[in-house]
Design a protein around this nucleic acid. Structure first.
Length: 793
RNA sequence: GCCUGGAUGGUGGAAUGGUAGACACGCUAGCCUUAGGAGCUAGUACUUGAAAAAGUGUGAAGGUUCGAGUCCUUUUCCAGGCACCA
């Protein structure tokens, strides 16, 4: 038997986590008539490193909210799954000379055990991982939906190639020119790849983010990534020909200052050069700059080459030179710019290097044009006048930075793209009845080689054409793991469904996700892709929502005790297992919440967790001072009511750190009193249970209540009663706006009564004179501020 | 360069425009103990003071207000994101 002097977390946790799991305590009834609440964590890659204390920060927060909402009478869906396809798992398998299938099984098992150890309340009936055949069948099915709508297409284009991962990666996976996963410098390669047409939904993605309850910074970053800008395309005629070069600018008001044109090395305008000698020289120049990644191009040196072509500025017929330069990006605007050295830093650098003249045409401080036809006119006015003057040579347009999503990968561990190539019929989608297209297991060497590993399996590759039955071959590339994670939140609603992606009525009932928690590193990847896929599935009438995540919050990072990112390299990883063994899961959970606001990053502090552990021990000892006679004690009643009220409010506003301090304050008060009524004790452990599920369940049993505390309703908050202990309050006194102390007054006492009291009060009467009062500011039961018309106080 | 957050004791952090520093860590002193990395009590922003108390104080400078950590303007520094996007 567990004694009541010392809290034995190991024993208590072992006992309850088994019972909870066996009885599936957190099972969600899909068809419940209660109001629904769908709360979700960004599901993890089950990497081999195991779960560290940082992972648990977000999971604990969602667990607290889930438990709170459950007790508030909601049917709560809080599921968990594993993002097991993709590079993290595959690279881990390669490194350890294992098979990705086995690695996934081992790692998900370990992760799941850690979540059980931490007392995270999940409905495990709905668990899946993205490499399950039954899951990726529907990933492929979604691909086919997009294919049939013309939203999945193949094209040859310069794409990002990671020379270490030996695959292409999407723009979103390139961080400052480096591969997100391995940090290698990304190269540009001109190869054929599969894309999803996310750009078709670009305006909806911009406008609909507005009303979401998301952190402002996340909304802003996503919009910056989409990068909408309004401007003008202008045609510059080539001298002595009928040809044009079209440029894009957002500052049409500076067109009078154009002293050159610059085009990208990949630009088709290079064909305008007819001189054979020049063409050769240009080809040599291009070899030195292209194709290569942006980071390789030095930003302070803007190389270039004079093409010899002369362009004519349509606004003033000036003749200007056309250069090729590596600072012009092919895939933005028209791949050509008008060079205005005075009003653009990059043009200035270029002009300086190539001795091109410049001219100031606009004064941005004064907001007026200072050169040309519209000298002295406000910029806004001049803009539209110039566009008018250019007439057919100019066209207002909108440009975006966002490109279509590159989804194919030259890797093994992903969902095969369900396409068949037939010599007769061409590109043929795999019929729905033939899904899933399974990953071949007969591949000896699945490591990346630069060509798709799937291509080495003849049993996989050789197939009958679904149309003509002639021999055909399969597409051997696999899908980006972000395709898997762009729809996983739907599958939890109906995870066992074999007939469809999910039941329509259940989708309608459970979507959207009411609360979503995860790292902010997914802002321009996962979160954007999910919004896109949600829109497509809405158009296909599979779901009825446009936006998947109504409310989103990010958990901050957990750094090591040394303040650095937790990493094997620094030896500063604090494993969840270690923290649980030493201090107990409840202490760990409460400490993670107590450290500060959820969104804030913190360093793990091994010393500080002691404080929470002490609190847990004191909660355990509280059972010794339960007093049946305290039942009618009004202080006891007031205290617990205030606690319930405050914890409710602070959970709702996501201030879990304040909740923990409220529990501590309450305990301090109760210990001072020396006893607690059984009713208050029950309420106390109920409101504590979302934070510390183990000790509260054990104490619930100790006081002989019926299993389980986690099935109880949240205590109702009754208004704090006015009673004798509450009649007097400490009213702060300000004199000339400065705090001078408190006086004890009757609750609800009016202003003049209090002023009278002050003149009699020993502490204040010598400092103030009645005839000098200029003004009194009074807020009932809050503050009184007396202003004197002399400065003698 | 652009965007977004921050800046409060020795530390993590509290604070609907109304007593700044709650709560906790650490530290100091005392008690208890064979022992303490256990427990209990008291103290702990800074300056002056034995104390009572007084003055100062939320990165800096202004402003609004009876009253500002909180609102407004300017500015410095730190963190994060984006970045040759015309």
């Amino acid at each position: 038997m567990i004694n009541n002097l010392e809290y034995n977390h190991k024993e208590v946790e072992n006992k309850w986590k088994k019972i909870w799991y066996k009885e599936n305590l957190y099972k969600t009834d899909s068809y419940s008539t209660k109001p629904k609440f769908y709360i979700l964590d960004m599901f993890p890659y089950p990497s081999g490193v195991g779960l560290h204390v940082g992972h648990l920060k977000g999971y604990t927060a969602t667990d607290i909210v889930a438990r709170f909402m459950r007790m508030k009478g909601f049917e709560v869906l809080h599921p968990m799954g594993w993002d097991s396809f993709g590079l993290p798992t595959e690279n881990f398998a390669i490194k350890n000379n294992k098979n990705p299938f086995d690695v996934t099984r081992e790692n998900t098992k370990a992760f799941k055990q850690e979540l059980l150890n931490a007392g995270i309340g999940i409905d495990w009936n709905r668990e899946f991982d993205t490499s399950d055949e039954l899951y990726y069948k529907w990933t492929q099915w979604i691909f086919l939906k997009l294919y049939n709508k013309g939203l999945a297409y193949k094209k040859k284009a310069p794409v990002n190639w990671c020379p270490s991962c030996l695959t292409v990666i999407s723009n979103e996976q390139v961080i400052q020119g480096l591969c997100e996963r391995c940090g290698s410098m990304v190269e540009l390669k001109n190869i054929e790849q599969w894309f999803f047409r996310i750009t078709k939904y670009i305006e909806a993605l911009i406008s609909d983010i507005e009303n979401l309850d998301w952190p402002k910074s996340t909304k802003v970053s996503q919009n910056n990534w989409i990068g909408k800008s309004e401007g003008v395309r202008v045609k510059f005629k080539i001298k002595d020909t009928k040809e044009y070069i079209e440029i894009f600018t957002t500052k049409i008001e500076t067109i009078y200052g154009t002293t050159f044109i610059a085009i990208a090395p990949e630009s088709k305008y290079i064909d305008l050069v007819k001189d054979k000698e020049k063409v050769k020289e240009i080809e040599n120049y291009i070899k030195t700059v292209s194709p290569q990644s942006e980071i390789k191009r030095k930003k302070d040196v803007k190389t270039g080459f004079d093409t010899g072509i002369i362009a004519i500025n349509p606004i003033n017929k000036e003749e200007i030179p056309v250069y090729i330069s590596d600072y012009i990006l092919m895939d933005y605007g028209t791949g050509a710019v008008m060079g205005v050295p005075t009003h653009d830093e990059r043009d200035k650098l270029f002009a300086k290097l190539h001795n091109i003249k410049s001219r100031e045409v606009v004064d941005y401080k004064k907001g007026i044009v200072v050169y040309g036809k519209y000298k002295g006119i406000a910029i806004d006015v001049a803009k539209s006048k110039i566009i008018e003057d250019l007439s057919t040579m100019a066209k207002k347009t909108t440009e975006y930075k966002l490109r279509d999503w590159l989804v194919s990968r030259e890797r093994y561990w992903g969902a095969p793209i369900p396409i068949i190539y037939c010599k007769k019929c061409g590109e043929v989608p795999v019929p729905e009845k033939d899904l899933p297209v399974l990953i071949p297991k007969d591949i000896k060497d699945y490591r990346p080689k630069g060509t798709p590993p799937l291509a080495s399996s003849s049993s996989f590759m050789i197939v009958e054409c679904p149309i003509c039955s002639e021999p055909a071959t399969r597409e051997s590339k696999t899908l980006d793991t972000f395709v898997d994670s762009s729809w996983y939140y739907l599958r939890f609603i109906d995870s066992d469904n074999r007939q469809s992606l999910g039941d329509e009525a259940l989708f309608k009932k459970w979507l959207p996700i009411d609360f979503y928690v995860g790292g902010d590193e997914h802002t321009t990847g996962h979160l954007l892709y999910s919004r896109f896929i949600t829109r497509v599935l809405n158009e296909e009438k599979i779901i009825t929502i446009n936006e998947p995540f109504t409310k989103l919050r990010h958990q901050g990072k957990m750094f090591g005790p040394d303040g650095r990112k937790m990493s094997k390299r620094w030896g500063n990883v604090v494993s969840a297992e270690f923290a649980e063994k030493t201090y107990g899961a409840d202490s760990l959970r409460m400490y993670e919440m107590f450290m500060g606001p959820l969104s804030q990053s913190n360093s793990w502090n091994t010393r500080s967790i002691i404080g929470v552990r002490r609190f847990i021990d004191r909660v355990w000892r509280l059972q010794n001072i339960i007093d049946k006679n305290t039942l009618n004690n009004t202080t006891d009643y007031t205290l617990i009511n205030e606690l319930v009220l405050s914890v409710s409010q602070n959970i709702e506003s996501g201030k879990f750190n304040v909740c923990v301090s409220e529990f501590m304050k309450y305990l301090n008060e109760v210990e001072k009193i020396g006893s607690i009524s059984k009713e208050s004790f029950k309420k106390f452990i109920i409101v504590l249970s979302p934070f510390a599920p183990f000790i509260s369940e054990e104490l619930w049993e100790v006081i002989e209540e019926k299993y389980s505390i986690h099935k109880q309703l949240w205590p109702k908050v009754t208004k704090v009663i006015k009673d004798k202990t509450n009649t007097y309050i400490d009213l702060p006194i300000q004199i000339n706006g400065k705090y001078r102390g408190n006086i004890k007054v009757l609750r609800d006492l009016e202003e003049d009564e209090i002023v009278k009291m002050l003149f009699k009060n020993l502490k204040f009467k010598d400092k103030i004179r009645e005839e000098n009062i200029q003004k009194v500011i009074f807020k009932k039961n809050t503050i009184i501020n007396i202003i004197f018309n002399d400065n003698k106080v």
